[in-house]
């Protein structure tokens, strides 16, 4: 099964599940990636020149049973990968691509900890409200900000139910060449889109696995043979604020 078949955007749902399942079988091993992670990601790298396909829906599953309170390996990995290292006197003016939230059930007292970031909605409110179309969803489900047309109105921050969007409050230097970011635009988690396009895992997922927690897995929700799809089929998972029916790409287990 070749990758090219992924390109037929208008294919019926039934057809693409078959195609995606077959594609999931072939894992391309990129340099520096452990085999176990590749099997999690099921990331078929697209050949150069090929657009992202809507046959793929990238998603993440976070197991709160394995996520430790106080551990912020994923937050640190995100900051390192995306060079979110600017100094701000007021922490609220700094960028928050991913943050840890400690949750306690008010009456019973059951507690759990989880990372919160852009949930990569299938129906993203940020995309609906963006006046210029800068806030966008890529064919494979990744929600991004096109900084070239972002005017910094911050309406998407108003619309996001997860506080996942941040506004860059000051001039930046020292950006990662692969992760451009700068003053006056809104930004958020992009699932490490450049890494995914190279067949690598998002930095947070990689760091969580490296530290031995394995609380985060990443993969193609549309591919029934991927680990994430199998886990979601077998265990109870939660979409946060499911009442809004945004069809999230990030799911949680153990809430």
């Amino acid at each position: 099964m070749s990758e090219q078949e992924h390109d037929t955007g208008g294919a019926s749902r039934r057809k693409f599940i078959g195609a995606a399942a077959a594609a999931g079988g072939m894992a391309v091993i990129a340099p520096g990636i452990h085999l176990i992670e590749v099997s999690q990601a099921n990331a078929p790298t697209r050949p150069p020149g090929e657009a992202a396909s809507n046959l793929v829906r990238w998603g993440m599953l976070i197991d709160t049973n394995k996520c430790t309170a106080g551990c912020d390996d994923c937050v640190k990995a995100c900051a390192t990968e995306n060079n979110i290292n600017e100094k701000v006197a007021d922490v609220r003016q700094g960028s928050q691509w991913i943050r840890k939230i400690e949750v306690k059930e008010a009456k019973g007292g059951h507690t759990f900890s989880l990372p919160m970031m852009c949930q990569h909605c299938a129906e993203p409110p940020c995309v609906d409200v963006c006046p210029t179309g800068a806030s966008m969803k890529r064919a494979d489900g990744i929600v991004l900000v096109d900084r070239h047309s972002c005017i910094g109105c911050r309406y998407c921050m108003m619309a996001c139910p997860y506080k996942a969007r941040s506004f860059v409050h000051q001039p930046l230097t020292g950006q990662n060449p692969e992760v451009p970011r700068g003053q006056g635009c809104v930004e958020s988690c992009n699932f490490c889109v450049t890494r995914i396009d190279k067949g690598q895992l998002p930095a947070c997922v990689e760091s969580c696995a490296k530290a031995g927690h394995h609380a985060m897995i990443f993969g193609d929700l549309n591919d029934p043979s991927s680990e994430i799809a199998r886990r979601i089929a077998q265990t109870a998972t939660t979409q946060i604020r499911a009442d809004l029916r945004l069809d999230l790409g990030v799911r949680y287990q153990g809430i």
Binding site: T80, L172, G174, P177
Partner: peptide, 19 residues
């Protein structure tokens, strides 16, 4: 303002060196 203007810029990244 957003893109890195230096060639072969290496931020202190712990993980995989990206081509």
């Amino acid at each position: 303002g957003c893109h890195q203007p230096q060639a072969n810029y290496k931020a202190d990244k712990a993980t995989t060196a990206l081509p």
